[in-house]
Every structure is written in C-alpha cells, then in structure tokens.
Simulated assay, not measured.
Amino acid sequence: MATREAFIDLVAPIAVKLRMEGSAIYPSVRIAQAILETGGKVNAWNNLVGYKVGSGILTPYWQGDRVSAVTWEVIDGTRVDNVPGDFRAYSSIELGFRDQDLFFQAARYAGVRAARDPGEQTLALQNSGYATDPAYAAKMNSIIQANNLTRYDEEVTNMLEELQAQLTALQNRVAALEGQMALEAIPQWAEAAVEAAVKAGLIDTPDHGSYDFYRLLTVLHRKGIV
C-alpha cells in the first residue's frame, strides 16, 4: 500500500459495511487501530489489528492459520522490543475484522461495545487491556483527528437515517394499500353508519367496501351528517 490515503480507502468500506451490519466498532476507531497496528501497511496475513492466536479456538472466520512475528510490548512500564508472538492469519482483511468482532463479545470488552462515541471507544480499548501501550487511546485519537476519520462514522449515520426513512415510507405505503383493500364484511363498528347511509339513500348496501370507506362513513355518522 503506497500511501496512507490508499490504505484508508481500502479499509474504510469494510469498516463501514461491518458497522452497518451491527458491529460495535466505529469505523473511525477500526481504521485508526489498523493504522496504529500496521503503520498503514497491509501485512501478508491480513491481520490489521494485532490479534494474537490466544486460546487457539477456531471460529467461523479463523481456521487456525498463524504467523510468528516480533512486536513490542510495554512491560512494567518499560518498552521491550523484539517480543515474539503468534498472530492469527486470514485470507482477507474482512475476515480478520469479523473475527475481532467475535472477540469483542467477551465480557471484558463490555465498555468497548457500550461506547457512545469514538473517544469513549478508544479509551475503553485501552482500559480493557487490548494493548499494553499506555498511550494506545491517545495515539488512535490522534490518527482519527489527523485523517478526519469520523467522516466514516457520519456516513454510517446518514445511511441508517436514509434506510429508516425508506422503511417508514414503505410502512406508510403498505398501510395506505391496506386501507384501500376491500373488506370481506362490514366491520361491526361501522354497521350503524352503513345502515344510516342506506336509509338516507346515499349508498346501496356495500358488500366489499374498503377500510377507509367504512371509517369515513363512521366519522360522518358520528358528526350527524349521515
């Protein structure tokens, strides 16, 4: 990956997609963490979040592939370089992120899932012990700000609002169509209004009026018009 922008362009759509599907991780945090953990370069094993093998229990997204690499850790307040570790390997970046989402279902990460904004989430990641770096949250926050990554959080918000608007419009359309559909029989609550309208010579006895038709007759009847 030649540039930081290209790295973000690659990772952002995946982060947005997973958030739309219900991931607890804000896209801005996911992208920032990937940059922090990899330096903005995609590794050959598609693990952009420093997810170690750990328990080794297989998941729907990780089938046991691993690589050995060295990293650095903060131990007793001191940075120690060249610490060996076994990391999970994936066939795609998305699988790595999905596997991480499973990992975040643990009780230990309840604060991460409950975070109400990216700042809360980066701090929760640090406090939960995801990494040993005491500046982990501050570094992610700096990356988010420097690259305007919250625009991807806003993209998700806008998309969800648009989907909600579309759903509301569809529900209203369904309700309108249901109101126009002919009923099999006169509703009991409309019988008096229909009888009054027939006696007044306004209508013939309707066998299959719509819900809206019977509702209108009932309103007119109650107002004394029918």
Rank of each mutant, 00 (worst) to 15 (best):
L160G: 03
G64I: 07
G96C: 07
F87L: 12
N43I: 00
G39T: 11
T122F: 00
F104P: 04
T122Y: 05
W45A: 10
E37L: 02
W72Y: 15
G85S: 15
A69L: 06
E37T: 01
Y136Q: 06
A32D: 12
V53G: 02
R88Y: 02
E162T: 07
R151C: 05
A6M: 09
R4M: 11
E21V: 04
Y214M: 03
F87P: 00
A69I: 02
F97R: 09
R116M: 10
E161G: 07
G64K: 04
I8E: 00
F213W: 11
V53W: 03
I35F: 00
A131C: 14
E5P: 03
I35G: 01
W189M: 04
A44W: 14
M140G: 01
Q121N: 08
E184V: 15
P13C: 14
A2K: 13
E195G: 12
R215H: 10
Q100K: 10
G56C: 04
A124S: 07
V74H: 08
M20D: 10
A165Q: 05
R88H: 04
G224I: 13
V174I: 12
R116C: 06
A44L: 14
W189D: 12
S28T: 15
R98N: 11
R19H: 08
A135D: 04
A185L: 11
D204M: 15
V29L: 14
T150P: 09
R222A: 07
G111L: 04
T71I: 08
V53N: 05
A89H: 10
L220T: 07
Y214V: 04
T78E: 13
A137V: 01
Q126G: 02
A115V: 05
E37M: 01
K139T: 13
D86W: 06
N47Y: 02
N141H: 01
R222M: 03
